[in-house]
């Protein structure tokens, strides 16, 4: 594909720049504001983790970047630029060329992502012919090479296997092989280890980390598990109610969290080496539905340190260097809405 030449304004322009991304879903005459104004940058070769609980919008962000949302969804605003090229203004055909070649996606469940009636070899050949124009012996050789790259032993014999003949971990390796076959600059991994056992999860995380270095690929890792994110991500975004509530380096967010939700999320999770016997710090209640654009802090109803202002005005991310948190308790907080 003829890549438009990126014109980075600075020497260190980010690979991916997301600004004010908003997505809503329309169903049964109701609008759900799933993602509200998400912004972040991703540098070349680095990994960002997006964490949050069910319904926080993390997977929707991932799908919106690929423009793979269902028909009931609408990207209602914002911009996504990859190497300086705006993706949201591309037509369907142009976007198809971006997928697989520039950005690739790995899903949680490799069993449903792979076609059960095609062999692993057929999957690889199809992808290679589509993106690389390879066929015959060249495609075969590249397939073997890719399976080797993702740590599959005896790749030659695995090419003839059907997805059901492989274990979950092996299938996820195949998915990763397919994803990296087009040498993407960005790999989006949406809960890639959630369906796997913990020893296999450790292997897949190790594999992703190795591929990032070997292929100089950036990674967006979407996960509900803070541990998984801590393992791979350089930067961490914490999402709640469709918005980023905290953004910083993995060390900043996980070791010196600022937002009460991040703190609560960390405290709610028992660590394998923490003190036993004390009650876990549960977060009361459950996340609300996002049928309206938030005009105040979404976490306020569950927050232990809420103030009057929290239910009246929506806080924006307040930055302290590279560490931002959207909370009225954070120094320099500003936001929208009526002053109570």
């Amino acid at each position: 594909m003829a890549m438009p030449v990126p014109t980075p304004s600075q020497p260190e322009a980010p690979l991916l720049r997301v600004r004010d991304l908003s997505v809503c879903f329309h169903s049964n005459g109701e609008t759900v504001h799933a993602v509200n104004g998400v912004s972040f940058d991703l540098q070349r070769g680095s990994a960002v983790g997006i964490v949050g609980e069910s319904g926080c919008g993390k997977s929707t962000v991932a799908l919106a970047l690929m423009q793979l949302l269902t028909r009931s969804a609408e990207i209602s605003g914002g911009s996504v630029s990859l190497s300086g090229r705006e993706l949201l203004s591309l037509n369907a055909n142009e976007m198809r060329h971006v997928r697989g070649r520039d950005i690739a996606l790995v899903f949680q469940d490799p069993m449903t992502a792979l076609n059960p009636v095609l062999t692993i070899g057929q999957h690889l050949r199809e992808t290679l012919s589509l993106h690389e124009g390879l066929s015959g012996k060249a495609a075969h050789a590249r397939s073997v090479e890719l399976l080797k790259l993702v740590g599959i032993a005896a790749p030659e014999s695995r090419l003839a296997a059907y997805p059901h003949q492989l274990s979950g971990g092996m299938r996820q390796r195949v998915m990763i092989a397919l994803a990296v076959s087009g040498k993407p600059k960005l790999l989006i991994a949406d809960e890639p280890t959630t369906a796997l056992d913990v020893t296999i999860q450790a292997q897949i995380l190790q594999l992703l980390s190795r591929l990032r270095d070997e292929l100089d690929m950036s990674i967006i890792l979407v996960s509900h598990d803070l541990g998984v994110v801590a393992n791979l991500a350089d930067r961490v975004l914490v999402m709640y109610g469709g918005a980023v509530v905290e953004d910083g380096t993995a060390e900043q967010v996980l070791l010196e969290p600022k937002h009460p939700y991040t703190k609560a999320l960390i405290a709610a999770r028992p660590e394998i080496d923490s003190d036993r016997g004390t009650a876990l710090c549960a977060i009361p209640g459950a996340a609300g539905r996002l049928t309206e654009q938030p005009s105040s802090c979404s976490f306020e109803p569950r927050c232990a340190v809420r103030m009057e202002v929290c239910s009246a005005r929506l806080p924006k991310l307040a930055w302290d260097g590279a560490h931002g948190a959207a909370c009225w308790h954070v120094a320099g907080a500003s936001g929208e809405g009526q002053v109570p």
Partner: peptide, 18 residues
């Protein structure tokens, strides 16, 4: 193999992955 929510422990660990 259980990941800790601590990037320092996670990255610097030399524990072998089984």
């Amino acid at each position: 193999a259980v990941p800790r929510a601590n990037p320092k422990v996670e990255r610097n660990s030399d524990r072998p992955v089984i």
